Computed example of a mutant assay.
Amino acid sequence: MTARTTRRTMLGAALAAPAIWGKDAVAQIRRGDELTVGVWGGVQERIVRQYCGTPLEQQHGVKINYVLGGTTERRARAYAERGRPSFDVLYLNISESRQAVRDGVTQAPTANVPNFANLYPLARQGGYGVAFNPVTIVYDRRAVASPMTSWKDFWRDDLKGKVIWPTYPGAQGTSALLMSAKVWGGSERNIDPAFQNIARLKPFAAIQGSQDQLYGMFDSGVGAASVEFGSFTRRYAETRNPNIVVADPTEGQVVAMNVACITTGTRNQALAEAWVNLHLSPECQQAYAEQIYYSPTITNLTLPAELSAKLVMGQAAVEKLVDFDWGVVAQNEPRWSSRFTREIAG
């Protein structure tokens, strides 16, 4: 069976199997219902349209409305509309999703979504985790004396003056700060070791504030190593700069996760659950892995060995991801941001 035939068969199964989310739930999905989904644009929008939106529209005669953009905008809107949401499903990051449940803006995940049973435990918090996208060390193999295998390698003599540190706040900067604390004896509750040791890395080759900025610096030979999302960097390495390596440090990569959240008070509960269930289907998860190297959050997916080697696959690999108390991190962000500006970026 060819890959094209396999995908066509998978999609056909998704279109033809209303029983996957239960007869009672399907009975509540009425023709003409509208589901509003807040999600990122680009490739992610195209994937969810194909594997979630189109099957629901064709099978049930419903309409899916998409609100595209970043998490900052849709999170603010969801909070402003708490209890009377215009979103039925919105996508948040790992920290935002857990806080939204605590604040009553979104619902905790439940087994009402059948594919919930296939989620790794880490992906059952703050909603339904749909993709792991860890943050890790990335480096130019030509500019280092030996491979980087530990977060402590940033402090090696051969990296002096070559480190491109990520700005804070932001996923990359937060991960770099927290892992610096962890490897030097601190934690999210004891951040002093991070600031003290990051300051020892100065002078930096540069401070980067975005992926595009970092990749431009790598292209220009500005520095040797930084902290970035592994998925995007792997794609960059394969398409633009084959000298860039995505490291798998012994202490682990920092978990980052996209989370599908059903709003509290949605009037389309069954349809929202059906949407999430399709996003957690093997065919949708495989599309994410193939197209943007996002790692699956479900256990019932087998991928080709060549692709699996580029992802976080299997229980042992998922358990190695480093998680933090993101509530503590969020509470301290204003104070840490001021300190970063004063002690690191200044």
Rank of each mutant, 00 (worst) to 15 (best):
F232A: 15
A274L: 00
G221W: 14
T167I: 14
E273A: 05
P18D: 04
R49D: 01
R189L: 13
A143M: 12
I298S: 02
L11S: 00
A305C: 02
A247H: 02
I298W: 04
A14N: 15
Y215I: 10
G173N: 01
F204C: 04
L11K: 10
A194K: 01
H279A: 15
V329K: 08
D212Y: 13
A76N: 15
A272C: 06
Q285Y: 08
A145M: 07
D103C: 03
V26E: 14
Q172F: 12
L15P: 02
Y66M: 12
E319L: 06
G83A: 05
I29D: 03
K23L: 15
K202P: 07
G186Y: 05
T5I: 10
I164F: 05
P166Q: 05
L303C: 15
A108D: 14
D158P: 03
F232Q: 11
G61V: 06
P147L: 01
R235F: 06
H279L: 14
G70V: 01
L119R: 03
E81G: 03
T233Q: 00
A270W: 07
G173Q: 02
Y293V: 06
K320Q: 14
D88H: 11
A17F: 15
P193D: 09
W165H: 00
A205G: 02
M217I: 03
V254W: 01
P166W: 04
R30C: 14
I137M: 05
V138W: 05
A272K: 08
R235M: 14
Q196R: 14
Q172L: 12
Q211K: 03
A287M: 00
F132S: 08
G265I: 10
A317Y: 14
Q28S: 04
S150M: 04
Q331S: 07
H279G: 15
T36V: 15
A256Q: 10
T2V: 06
G22A: 09
V101S: 10
E319N: 15
Q208K: 15
L301N: 05
D24F: 03
F154D: 02
D33A: 13
Q58V: 10
G41I: 04
A305Y: 05
L119Q: 02
Y139N: 07
R200L: 09
E343H: 05
R267K: 11
A287E: 13
Y91T: 13
F116N: 04
A13W: 08
L90C: 01
M179K: 04
F324A: 07
